[in-house]
C-alpha cells in the first residue's frame, strides 16, 4: 500500500512537471515582430510558349519589385493595426 502511494505520487509529480515544461515552450512570434523574409518568385525555365507570356509578364513584374513583397506590406499593416495605447481608469476622491 505504501509503495502504491509513493508510485502514484511520483507519477503525479512527474506529470505536473512535464506540463509545466510544456508551458515554457518558445513563444510564438509576437505581433510586433517584423518578418523580413523574402519570398521567392518562380520564373519558368525553358522555352516560352505564347499562352505562357501573360503569366511570365506578371512574374517578371513581381520579380522586378522583389525588394518589397506583398507579404511584407501585409505584415506591416497587421502590425500597425495592433498598435494600441490603452488609457488608465481613475480613482475619484468624490
Amino acid at each position: 500500500m505504501k509503495k502504491k502511494i509513493c508510485v502514484v505520487g511520483l507519477v503525479l509529480l512527474f506529470g505536473l512537471f512535464a506540463s509545466g515544461c510544456a508551458d515554457q515552450q518558445p513563444q510564438e512570434k509576437t505581433t510586433q515582430e517584423i518578418d523580413h523574409e523574402d519570398t521567392e518568385t518562380d520564373i519558368p525555365v525553358g522555352t516560352e510558349t505564347p499562352h505562357q507570356d501573360e503569366a511570365n509578364e506578371n512574374d517578371y513584374a513581381e520579380s522586378n519589385v522583389t525588394s518589397v513583397t506583398q507579404e511584407e506590406l501585409d505584415k506591416l499593416k497587421e502590425d500597425i493595426g495592433k498598435l494600441e495605447a490603452d488609457d488608465l481608469g481613475g480613482l475619484s476622491g468624490d
Binding site: A61, N64, K77, I80, L83
Partner: peptide, 18 residues
C-alpha cells in the same frame, strides 16, 4: 501609418501592373 501603408500598397500594385 495606416495611411502610409495604403499609399505604399497602391504604389506597389501600380508597379506590378507595369
Amino acid at each position: 501609418l495606416l495611411s502610409a501603408h495604403s499609399n505604399l500598397n497602391q504604389a506597389y500594385n501600380l508597379m506590378l501592373k507595369r
